[in-house]
Write a protein that binds this DNA or RNA. Sequence first.
DNA 1: ATCAAGTCTGAAACTTGTTCTAGATTAGCG
DNA 2: CGCTAATCTAGAACAAGTTTCAGACTTGAT
Lengths: 207, 207
Amino acid sequence: MPAEASTSRPASPPLTERQEARRRRILHASAQLASRGGFDAVQMREVAESSQVALGTLYRYFPSKVHLLVATMQDQLEHMHGTLRKKPPAGDTAAGRVAETLMRAFRALQREPHLADAMVRALTFADRSVSPEVDQVSRQTTAIILDAMGQPDPTPEQLSAVRVIEHTWHSALITWLSGRASIAQVKIDIETVCRLIDLTEPGRPAR
Amino acid sequence: MPAEASTSRPASPPLTERQEARRRRILHASAQLASRGGFDAVQMREVAESSQVALGTLYRYFPSKVHLLVATMQDQLEHMHGTLRKKPPAGDTAAGRVAETLMRAFRALQREPHLADAMVRALTFADRSVSPEVDQVSRQTTAIILDAMGQPDPTPEQLSAVRVIEHTWHSALITWLSGRASIAQVKIDIETVCRLIDLTEPGRPAR
DNA sequence: ATCAAGTCTGAAACTTGTTCTAGATTAGCG
DNA sequence: CGCTAATCTAGAACAAGTTTCAGACTTGAT
């Protein structure tokens, strides 16, 4: 029973069971260390030791610390998408549902602020060499938002709005994590940007 | 004639002339190295050498690489605010003027993409210890946007919109810098988010 | 079962951000 | 001028990400 997740890796070379296990151990150690002290606490030597893997092996699985943390984020996002699916938001408007969904995710992050720090910092610090992985995270986030909107077939305008929402989401998280914005502030920003969705409700002249 | 900029540092201890000169040399070296190879090319030893200052001194002036790059950004932003002031945007709507202003800034960044990379990456990677400096950058950005709106006395709603615009601006830059979004895409995102301004034009029922 | 290719391990080495130290220089002051 | 505190310099030292390498272990195919 090899649990193959639906939205996962390209799975270039299929991993053996032991390799899959190593990969899981590494991701687990990464998340654990991150939960403690955030980005800085995820030290490659420690991750290697915690996951019972040689440093060189760690680097074979994840070519850099940022790759590792972005993969950790993919992992967590899948989790969250699953959780969110179970109890879909109940608002009347698409904007309200999206805002509610993002606030739910935000509350989850608040429970593990250090982990959030590690993941989000890695995500925005990632350079070109991590683009595919970051893109995957972005697609997953988009999927979550579209789910909340309940629009299986969004217009280009709506996709633009979703992109802007994602931008705001990431950047607002950053300001919260670095102590420059309060939780309340983040909430306001999310609600504000979600209004863009109403603005692009189909049946409106585009411009 | 000690040119004291209007929006500058708290100037805790006033610097002597030679110190001011050192500071300028450092910032200049930083910008120069950044223009070459972006974030990675700004190596503290090189900055120290280029600016004819000992490594320890560099760290006395800027307590970390991120501090240095954020200060570099403040410097460049002041420049840009000055430039933008000279030719204010000409659009009819506030949203249009803000979008035009940001696109103008964006085109300036496109001319020095490596410098942009160094500054923006530093900005979003900055942790709590750099909050005051990052905040200053944020205030300066807000000032530029409010200038473009031509609203000397914005409502709280408008301030929220401006915050969201800044979020989008930063995050969109990141996606462009890491090659995940095209210039055209960034343009669309900026234009999309600027619509929020019309939405909060005074004289509208606030919800 | 055996062999070749690929993978993993442990340890050292290298890079770059950051810290520390001892001595030289400078600034402000009486 | 001559003193004292602060600042600056050169350079070593340390920390953590990354690379490298020789040898042991697995895997897959014959």
